[in-house]
């Protein structure tokens, strides 16, 4: 039984001659516990797809069934609840609240989630034991992204969605972030979806979906994912 089932999903902006199809009849399945990488060039429609999966946007057509519920039919309120309880987001720009310390940024998320994890433990897990009481401005880019990941994880979500998580980071830092995500997925058996334009990281995934022109170009499972340390790009 698939954990995520996207069936004939389309996202269409405008109508008539100005019609733009960001997602055009997309269908795929993701099993429970998979680390999925969605790759595609800029403007391929991968971010739109991620937003729909995360309950931040609704598709024009089709079904998006997550854990047996069709979120395509959700009201705005239900979508918020869904984001609150089930989804963790990581962005290219970390979007931390400048006015809150690292720890408080994580608490911001944990305090609204019903099954939140222990915040300090999560901070230790992402390697920020000693930086907990610093403000974002006092942290490096990688550290800030770790805080962002900790914020997403601390809610104890079913699904972790990452939009170009390494886009603003240097190579080494980026690699350590990806490592963190891979470990999280494999250790907790939770689904992680990473959206990227960088095809080189495909080997780290259990499942790779390639998107082009709003359509699924390739959908393949990877029986033996490579640990991030061994990937070079």
């Amino acid at each position: 039984m698939a954990y995520i089932d996207v069936i004939h999903e389309s996202k269409i902006y405008g109508s008539g001659p100005q019609e733009v199809r960001a997602n055009d009849d997309v269908s795929f399945e993701i099993k429970k516990g998979e680390l999925t990488v969605i790759v595609g060039a800029s403007g391929a429609g991968k971010s739109t797809l991620l937003n729909i999966l995360g309950g931040m946007d609704t598709p024009t057509k089709g079904q998006v069934i997550i854990n047996q519920k069709d979120i395509a039919q959700y009201s705005s309120r239900k979508m918020t609840t869904f984001r609150r309880t089930s989804i963790g987001f990581v962005f290219q720009f970390y979007n931390l609240i400048p006015n809150l310390t690292a720890l408080e940024n994580v608490e911001l998320a944990s305090q609204i989630a019903p099954n939140a994890l222990d915040v300090s433990q999560v901070m230790v897990d992402v390697g920020l034991k000693d930086r907990m009481n610093n403000f974002p401005a006092q942290l490096s880019g990688g550290e800030q992204q770790r805080v962002a990941i900790a914020r997403a994880i601390a809610k104890n979500p079913e699904l972790l969605l990452c939009d170009e998580p390494t886009g603003a980071l240097d190579y080494q830092t980026g690699k350590s972030i990806l490592m963190l995500l891979q470990n999280f997925s494999h250790q907790t058996k939770k689904n992680v979806v990473i959206v990227t334009h960088n095809g080189m990281i495909k080997p780290m995934a259990d499942h790779v979906i390639e998107i082009g022109d709003g359509k699924v170009k390739q959908d393949q499972l990877n029986a033996n994912p490579v640990p991030v340390e061994q990937i070079e790009w």
């Binding site: 309120r77 918020t80 869904f82 609150r84 989804i87 609240i97 911001l108 809610k155």
Partner: peptide, 16 residues
């Protein structure tokens, strides 16, 4: 506005 968007994405209800 960025801050508000962030907490919206985190799943804060409109009133929150």
């Amino acid at each position: 506005i960025r801050e508000l968007s962030t907490i919206k994405v985190l799943g804060f209800y409109p009133m929150e």
